[in-house]
Structures are given as structure tokens and as C-alpha cells.
Design a binder for these strands. Structure first.
Lengths: 194, 194
DNA sequence: ATAGTTTTGGAACGATCATTTCAATAAGGT
DNA sequence: ACCTTATTGAAATGATCGTTCCAAAACTAT
């Protein structure tokens, strides 16, 4: 055994994640990634192989540390009846804070969906899987909130809520007020289904 | 008067528009724009000043030739009761055709919303205005379809439909089926409000 | 035809991009 | 303390980026 890695991989990926999140894959330059992670090119290439490798790691970290923790109350063993409302309100709160990272940058994966790198097959699948995961969590949350709603109606309501969450993410950077209206519309739909 | 411009400006802008639409602002290279328009750099820079100038022209052309024609039946003097349904179904039809330009590339402005260039103030406003225009047209269409619906309820329904249209555009490149579900959810909401 | 003006082709610009290379450095394991 | 192996710093690679420049070509107006 020789020298051991001095930096924390997860920490470096988190730092890179923020850069990709804010600037997108193509505009996240190696110098910017160096500055954010505190690593030199050589270390980055040694640890992740390529810019793309680092991006993939960042996406994995985003799913594990950002997306899924937020979704957990909706997918846990026992789901509280108001978990879906808490989720949407929590998201609204995050997007509401003017100048916050979330309100300025939305969702890493939704941004990616419209970016050039989305022509890549693997990336497409990642984003599509993310949408499915989001939809599933929302559907489970709706079942706990509205146990008497027929399955097909609940699934349609989940489609609407999922779409509205996606649109809030897609819009927030450019039209924060519009993004909040999307989330309010989702909360309204759920209230109306009671 | 000297030599007159040999190419058709509107035609060149249309060609450039397709490049920006498919690849995004930052990944639309000058060589690609030259190839698409059939113009040399010098002509492009002479006519539009910069890549950004060409992009702005492309966005204007997109609004005038793509967005507003589609929205016209919703904003005309007389609005047919089913105009809003026709709009959503027409959009669905366009996104449904696998491999079509629309299904592969969504909306130029929604893609732009998540791209790096969206940090530019002017671009932000353009996209926000677009969303407002879309929302207004949808609200007018809903008024013709559901004249008895109270104003506040109609406005909320318009928020939901607008958001779902945006999410369909945001998703289609990466998850076409998910995009269609968003539009179906919008059609469902309108049907349920009858 | 000629003069005057604009467009155009082609080459060159400096800047920045992602990636590679390699020697110097650092830190286990023995 | 030594040897081995991995990490790191720094410089260089070739490619491509958006932009500029200028002389040659093209066309209108007189």
C-alpha cells in the first residue's frame, strides 16, 4: 500500500455537484470544478476518469443526498396522511426563499433534461427514472392522504402533481412566481379531491 | 445604395432557430450555424452582430412563427368553446409523433429556462413573459370552455394547465411518455371541471 | 460604364476547452 | 528507515470556441 487519498470523495462530489447544478454540465469548466472541489485536474481525472465521470458521481450524490431524503416520508414503511402536503409545502418553502440555491437553480436533473447532454442515452434514462421515482412517491403519498380515492383517479392526480413539481423546477430560475403558482396549483388539486 | 443582401433574413433565422432549439444556445457552434443557414461567419456577424444577436432573432422568430400561431385560436376576438381542448390535443399530437422535431426537442424557451444562458437578465424576462403569455391564452380558452366557472377557480385551473404544458415541454426529450401524461392530466382536469 | 456602397469569403486572432503526461511528493506496509 | 505504491502539482497537448479583419466580389444608382 502506498499513499492514501487525502480528500473526502463524497465531499468533493458534493462540491462538484453544486457547480453542475448551477451551471449545467457543458458550462461547468474544469477550472471551476477545480476551484469548487479544491482538487487539481490530475486528482479529478485520477479519481473520476473524466468530467463525465464526475458528473455521473454528482448525479448519484444528488439522488442519494438531495432527492431521496426529501422523498423518504412518502416512501417509508408507514406514510403519514399529510406527508404529501408536507412535501409540497416544503418544496414551496425552499423555492420561495429569494436568492436561495434552490430557487436560483431548481433541480439538477430537470435542468439536465433540457440541456445538450440530454441527447445522451444514459442521461435520458437517468432523468426518466427520476421522474418515475418522483411519480411513485407522490402516488404513495396521495394514497395515504386520500385512501378512498379510486386507483385510476389517484394515478391521474399523481400525474398532475408530478408534472406541476417538474414545471416548478423548470421555471424557478427564470420565473420564480410562476414556479410557486405551479406548486400552489398542485396543493389546490389535492385539496379539491378531499 | 450598394450591393443588396442576397439571402432571406427570416429564412436564415429560421434555420438558426432549429439549431438553437435542438442544441441549446451554448452548444450551438458558429460552424453549425453556418452550415444550417448557408451563410459564412462574416455574413452572420454583419447581419446579427454576434451569436447572441442571432439567438435573440431566433427567439423572436420562435415566438412569432411557432408560439403565437398555435395560441391564436385562444386569444382571437371570438374564441371557440373547444379551442383549449384543440390546443392541448394538438400539442399532444405533436409530442406523440416519435422522432418528430417537437417530441425530440420540446420548446426552445423551456429548454432555455434551465440552460446557463438563463442567468442572463434579459433572457429570464423573455421566458417569464412567455409563460405569462401562455397562461393568459390558456385562461381565455378556459373562460370560453367553462363560462360558468368562477374567476378564481378558473385562474387556478389555468395555473395547473400552464404548469402541465411547461412540464410536458421540459420532459419530452428525455421522457416522452411522461410528457404525454402531463398533457393528459391537463385534459383530465378540464374534463373534471365540467 | 463608372462610381459608390455593401456583402461576402477566407484566414487569422486570442481565449478557453477537456484531456494527457510526467516527475515530484507523500504516506502506508514491512 | 526503506521500499513500494498512490496522489499530486504543473506544464503542455490539440481542438474548438466566438470574434475580428480585410481585400475581393457584387450590385445599385447615377
Amino acid at each position: 500500500m502506498g499513499r492514501v487519498q487525502t480528500f473526502d470523495t463524497a465531499e468533493a462530489v458534493r462540491a462538484a455537484r453544486a457547480v453542475f447544478w448551477a451551471h449545467g454540465y457543458e458550462d461547468a469548466s474544469i477550472p471551476a470544478l477545480e476551484a469548487a472541489t479544491g482538487l487539481r485536474r490530475s486528482s479529478i481525472y485520477h479519481a473520476f476518469g473524466s468530467k463525465r465521470g464526475l458528473f455521473d458521481a454528482a448525479v448519484g450524490s444528488y439522488l442519494d443526498e438531495v432527492v431521496r431524503p426529501r422523498l423518504r416520508p412518502l416512501t417509508a414503511e408507514r406514510v403519514e396522511p399529510d406527508a404529501i402536503l408536507d412535501y409540497l409545502r416544503g418544496l414551496r418553502g425552499a423555492l420561495e426563499r429569494a436568492g436561495s440555491f434552490a430557487s436560483e437553480n431548481g433541480c439538477l436533473l430537470v435542468n439536465t433534461a433540457g440541456a445538450p447532454i440530454a441527447h445522451d442515452q444514459t442521461v435520458r434514462k437517468t432523468v426518466a427514472d427520476y421522474r418515475a421515482e418522483l411519480h411513485h412517491a407522490i402516488a404513495v403519498g396521495l394514497r395515504a392522504h386520500l385512501p378512498d380515492l379510486p386507483d385510476d383517479r389517484r394515478d391521474r392526480l399523481a400525474d398532475a402533481c408530478t408534472g406541476l413539481v417538474v414545471s416548478a423546477f423548470a421555471l424557478t430560475r427564470v420565473d420564480n412566481a410562476g414556479a410557486l403558482r405551479s406548486l400552489d396549483a398542485a396543493l389546490d388539486l389535492i385539496a379539491a379531491a378531499d
